[in-house]
Amino acid sequence: MSDETNAPDAERPKRRWWLGLLPLLVFSGLLAVFAYQLIGGRDPSIVPSALIGDPVPTVELPALKPDKPGFGPQDFGGGPILVNVFASWCVPCRVEHPLITALARDYGIPVYGLNSKDRRDAAIAWLDELGDPYTRIGYDPNGRAGIEWGVYGYPETFLINPAGEVVYKYVGPITPRLLEEEFLPRIDAMRAQ
């Protein structure tokens, strides 16, 4: 009698013990996902460029300065080219300016400036003060060309390959580390080809 009544009860804990581990497993899984996002994951607020892999936008930009040309799609190709979106009112642009200058001078990469949503006199005064590293500067007072390029923050820097296609874009001021890790390896690879 006692054996018969105990049998189903003894079976129960044996069948369900792993259920107790389930919360721990789920928690560990979540922990792994969060840790990955925190340590190695990308910043979710950065919007990947829709232009990657596409030819540069067809918009033609007039010159900012009388002695330096603007640029259009026909001015790309032949080698790696950077497009740097800047404005005189943009503080991070000022921060990254020495690095843009170093890229142009020390690495010999043509950098096209895209002066967006700026006043012409303010932009020229800004370049007079900080130096002008740009090969060409396009003037985009109402930001229309910026929208064609998918610009949503200042500064933004695009890397264009010798075929005239957008290869990489960074939103925000360039840092020395970013230069080392993202821009220079890509530029070197293009030059090696």
Partner: peptide, 8 residues
């Protein structure tokens, strides 16, 4: 808009 800024 998607052509310029992506699905985002």
């Amino acid at each position: 808009l998607v052509d310029r800024y992506g699905d985002y």
